[in-house]
Amino acid sequence: MKRPVPTFLTVLAITLISFAACGTTPGEPATATLRLAPSSSSFTTATGWDVVLDEAVLVAGSAYFYAPSGDTMASLERSLRESLGVPVAHAHGGHDPFGSRPVRLEWLGPTSLDLLGADTIDIGAMDGSVGASVEVTLAFEPLSGALLEASSPAHGHHAWVAGTATRTVEGSTETIEFAGGFDFASGGTENLVEAIPAPAAVAADGTWTLHVALARWLDQARFERLPEGPNAARTITPSTQVGLAWDLGLRDPTDYELTYEARLAP
């Protein structure tokens, strides 16, 4: 439950932050850069298919890095910023999406991420406070504007894959071209991937790098069950086994790894 911050606490927070030492004082403002590492486009699934992806795109909406429960400095910082009218990630009680948890850092998108890029790239800036982080929630808000266009990198979806799957059974080689989009529903926790481990001592400045295990997205896919269509590439839809396997895979928190490197002041 959200409680109003008394004025004296606001003044205290400002005082504390003003006198904070450089870089490591809990509650001191922190910034970070969120980066994306490239993923491997080739892998073999548990179902026996060798997959080569030509396209893999994820449209991320926001990311919330949580402090440990009871971290009052993270809460104080958030409450201070709220009292100053600065929009912040919000916490709600009980079984609501984000729970009553203090937020260490937040990144707000949305941004279309090409997971097959050649190099690690910057996604964007994050702000928050110095202190421990424990885990991350990725949120996928409803798309709008150019991201909804079929011409967008994710073809108007939250995620998009295209490629080929090949297997050899009893000496006979079968190759299936595939393509398709994935969309998160809205409401409750439908559009969240929670509990992504992110243990770190967040300093005043640093970088977080996101690694996406694309191989796990389609690890349980049975491409042989994708129905043929009018196009060369068979379409992945929610009503196919491949679509279901992808849904389960893409939502699995263990598909995502976040690593942190602090940039400490000299």
């Binding site: 991937v193 509990a195 009503s239 939502r251 699995d252």
Partner: peptide
């Protein structure tokens, strides 16, 4: 269409 059991957003140790 395949019947789906939808895990929690925090995932499952095994699918």
């Amino acid at each position: 269409a395949p019947i789906a059991y939808e895990p929690p957003a925090s995932g499952l140790p095994m699918q």
